[in-house]
């Protein structure tokens, strides 16, 4: 449904989007994830024909954004970063205006306005001036205008920004329910959002795609290294943290031990080990054998958040996480 090839956008000084390529199938929800300034908005603006790419191409539903922008525009609903609302209009008037703009016929117009008001829970402010509404309501109106013409493709730039927790959940459910008929790209920095709503995730950083995969795979992939939190206490005397660390490092399968903190007599460590060897049992035995108490031993499953930080930042585990999947690939 959406094919992006080597898409590039250069501004006067910097390259905001640098040769990114991806492919999105019909009916999927794809999360576009990246830190501030990664180039999410810029990419979306090129997909919606707001600005042309410097190089590369993008096609939506088979239409090229440069060659046939009109056809592309007919098929997309777009929610920009700031909801494009006119404060001097009433909610209902505004949605009717957008509906007309998108080419809805007179007969469909009022039906669609009713429908999107209901869907995006803005029915109660239909007669109100948009200038008098809160940010959250404007955001919802923005979402309502994006779906008013029932487009094939929805491009949503941070659709849940500024909403309250209840609304965030409702919006995510709404987005999920729209998938299937619609192909959806949404950008966000909120990781649980991607975990909850999206099937695919594209992580970009500094204008480059650093990972494209399904959410499920990405989580598994990061679990290639298992990270375990261990809390050890001395039975009688104080513990020597360095000694414990040395002991733990001897356990087979352990890659690295970080000393995290010391609380009175207890010391907490984060142990990284490879996934295929069950290091947790060995760790427990080693600690008990040394005559210490094992207070806690739990797996810290990698959240998407950690993956995200690994891939986009200089997290200590970055190198390991990047090597691991590559090493595992041939074995599959």
């Amino acid at each position: 449904m959406i094919t992006v090839k080597e898409l590039t956008k250069r501004y006067a000084r910097n390259t905001a989007v640098d040769h990114i390529s991806f492919n999105i199938e019909k009916g999927q929800i794809v999360g576009f994830l990246g830190p501030n300034g990664a180039g999410k908005t810029t990419t979306m603006r090129m997909l919606t024909c707001f600005m042309p790419p410097t190089a590369g191409s993008a096609t939506i539903a088979g239409f090229d954004v440069l060659e046939e922008p009109m056809e592309v525009k007919k098929r997309i609903g777009y929610l920009p970063e700031t909801p494009p609302v006119y404060p001097e209009m009433r909610t209902g008037e505004y949605l009717e205006f957008v509906g007309r703009l998108k080419g809805l016929s007179k007969a469909d117009l009022s039906k669609r306005v009713d429908y999107v008001c209901e869907r995006c829970s803005v029915a109660d402010v239909r007669q109100k001036l948009i200038s008098k509404l809160s940010k959250g309501y404007r955001q919802r109106i923005g979402l309502a205008q994006a779906i008013i013409h029932n487009p094939d493709v929805l491009i949503l730039d941070e659709p849940t920004a500024g909403l309250d927790p209840k609304q965030i959940n409702e919006t995510r459910d709404l987005i999920k329910s729209l998938a299937g008929d619609h192909t959806i790209i949404l950008s966000t920095h909120i990781l649980p959002e991607v975990e909850q709503t999206c099937e695919q995730v594209i992580i970009i950083n500094k204008g480059k795609v650093v990972a494209t995969d399904s959410v499920h795979n990405l989580q598994n992939r990061a679990r290639g290294i298992e990270s375990v939190i261990v809390e050890v206490a001395g039975r009688n005397a104080d513990l020597d943290a360095a000694e414990v660390q040395a002991q733990l490092e001897k356990v087979s399968g352990v890659i690295k031990v970080h000393f995290k903190e010391k609380r009175q007599t207890r010391s907490i460590f984060e142990v990284e080990g490879s996934n295929d060897r069950l290091i947790r049992g060995d760790l427990a035995r080693a600690i008990v054998a040394a005559g210490w108490d094992l207070n806690e031993l739990r797996s810290s499953a990698m959240s998407l958040e950690e993956i995200f930080l690994q891939l986009t930042g200089d997290h200590p585990a970055t190198a390991a996480a990047k090597e691991e999947p590559a090493a595992k690939e041939p074995g599959k």
Partner: peptide, 11 residues
């Protein structure tokens, strides 16, 4: 106000 984005991305 950014509404230009609505106009220029509409058919």
């Amino acid at each position: 106000s950014g509404t230009i984005e609505l106009l220029t991305t509409s058919p």
